[in-house]
Write a protein that binds this DNA or RNA. Structure first.
Lengths: 130, 130
DNA sequence: ATACTAAGACTCTCTTAGCGG
DNA sequence: CCGCTAAGAGAGTCTTAGTAT
């Protein structure tokens, strides 16, 4: 149901003991027992290390806790299936840049998104519930 | 570089206030402030509701905390394959912008490409895999 | 050895109250 | 109204010690 079962699954797939995983995470083996049996949950900084230690991504660990995919018209994240012409230009430009340029472009895109002036934050339909 | 910035990003994209998100999560607006500024981190049960409330998946929220490129043995993530993580972020940001923002971002990418300082021509760069 | 449990010290979240835009 | 901060009460993690397989 939670992430415990998935942690155990991934740990055993790697052939690690609870203590070995604990060492990678900077906690004791008992703490790992608690995670797997859902007695307690890893806190954020430890969670971050978990992805690396278990070599899994977040969607794998949280797969049982997220809403069912179903026929969700509003995809959670990916949606990068097809790019229109301008998006292709953007990616081509991005790929033409060196590391410094890439970082600048990404930072700039973050800035724009952070500024409500440039987001399509329009009133939209903020459904009037409760 | 935690999940705070991504929470804020997703919340604003939905046009929600901190209090409104808090109501969906069962916490106060101040708690949401703390999440976004990384003063504190949502605990697990609240984390679970977050995916649903923000309509995002776990990989989106944790994208900045996971290793760059990991070849997972587990069926971790079956995504596009076309764009790498940073390119996906760029496209997602682009799509979050209104027309004016999109134009600014495209113009900026053109400027960077035009400047030899940020292209990978003049200096040797890490070779890309074919 | 490995996994689990109990108890408690310790840490951190979350609320309330209040401030500034 | 909106977002942020400080303080403290309360909740929960993590360790140590011990049991069992």
């Amino acid at each position: 149901m939670g992430i415990g079962k998935r942690i155990k699954e991934a740990r055993e797939k790697l052939g690690l003991t609870q203590k070995e995983l604990g060492d990678l995470l900077g906690v004791t083996g008992s703490a790992v027992t608690n995670y797997e049996n859902e007695v307690s949950h890893p806190k954020e900084p430890i969670m971050y290390k978990m992805f690396e230690a278990l070599q899994v991504d977040a969607n794998y660990l949280f797969q049982d806790t997220m809403p069912e995919n179903e026929n969700s018209p509003a995809p959670a994240n990916a949606e990068t299936g097809e790019l229109d012409k301008q998006e292709q230009t953007l990616i081509q430009n991005y790929r033409a840049l060196n590391d410094e340029g890439k970082e600048k472009l990404l930072d700039y895109s973050d800035d724009l998104v952070s500024s409500s002036k440039y987001t399509k934050n329009n009133q939209s339909q903020v459904s009037q519930e409760a």
